Simulated assay, not measured.
Amino acid sequence: MPTPVEILLIYDKDCPVCNAFSQVVRIRQSVGELTLINARENSDILAQVTAKGFNIDQAMVLKIGDSWYSGADAMHMLALISSQSGWFNRLNYWLFKSPTRAKYLYPMLRGCRNLLLKLLGKSKINNLGSDDSHR
C-alpha cells in the first residue's frame, strides 16, 4: 500500500462557495489527508504559491506531495483522488474527472466567484501584486 502524501488545498475562505466546496470535498484515505489553507492568512504556503507564479485570485491551488496544480488542473486532480462518498463527491468526480471538461467548467466557476466577491464587497487577495484588485 502506498504511503499517504501531504495534500494541501489553498483557497479563499472568504468566498462562500470556495469555503463550502472545501468543507465537503473528501479525499480517499489511501491517498492522504487533505489540509485546508486559507489563502487570506499570510503564511509560508502562500509565499510558495506566489513564488510558483500562481494567482490565487484566479485559481485555487492544490499541492500533492511535491506536485502543484492550479485551477482546472487542481479540480481535476481533486476529482481523481476524491472518495466519491456522498452525492457531492460523486457529482464533483463526474464533472471534473475529464481534464477537458474541467478546463471548460473552471473559468465559469472562477467568474461566479469573482462576481460573488465583488457583490459581497470582498477585496482580492492580490498575492502577485496586480493592480486589478477591487474593493
Rank of each mutant, 00 (worst) to 15 (best):
T3R: 00
L105K: 11
S130M: 03
Y106R: 07
K63H: 11
K97I: 12
R113T: 06
L34N: 09
P107D: 06
Y104C: 10
S82V: 04
G86K: 07
S82K: 08
N19P: 08
D12C: 04
H76D: 05
L62T: 07
D131W: 00
V31C: 12
P4L: 11
L78S: 03
K118I: 13
C15Y: 01
T50H: 02
L91S: 02
G111V: 05
W68G: 07
M60R: 05
D12G: 06
N127P: 12
D44W: 14
I81L: 13
G53T: 10
Y106F: 15
Q48T: 08
S123T: 13
E33N: 02
H134T: 10
R113L: 02
H76S: 06
L95F: 14
F96V: 11
L8P: 01
F96L: 15
L117E: 01
A74P: 13
F54K: 06
V31F: 15
M1T: 07
I81W: 12
E41S: 11
F21C: 01
S43M: 05
G32T: 00
V24G: 03
N114M: 10
N55S: 05
P107V: 01
G53I: 11
R110V: 12
T50Q: 10
R28T: 01
A59S: 15
D57S: 04
H76L: 04
P4E: 06
L116G: 14
M108K: 14
Q48W: 06
I45R: 04
F54L: 00
M77F: 08
L34W: 03
G129P: 15
C112H: 00
D57C: 00
N114Q: 12
K97V: 13
W68K: 11
L80F: 02
R135N: 12
K97F: 14
N127D: 01
T50G: 05
K63N: 10
A74Q: 08
G129L: 11
Q58H: 15
K118E: 13
E6L: 15
M1G: 07
P2F: 04
S133C: 09
Y106H: 11
G65Y: 06
L115W: 14
T3S: 03
N92E: 00
V5N: 02
R110Y: 10
S82N: 15
V5T: 09
G121F: 13
K118F: 15
W87Q: 07
Y106K: 09
S83D: 14
D131C: 03
S133I: 06
I56D: 09
R135G: 13
K97D: 05
E33F: 08
L115F: 12
P4A: 11
R26A: 09
M77R: 14
I10G: 01
I56Q: 00
M75S: 08
K124A: 14
T35C: 04
R90H: 12
E6K: 15
V24R: 03
N42E: 15
K118P: 14
D132Q: 08
M108Q: 13
V49P: 03
A59M: 15
I81A: 01
S123I: 01
A79F: 14
R40P: 09
V5R: 05
V17T: 03
V61L: 05
A102L: 06
S30W: 09
K13T: 00
V24I: 13
L119D: 02
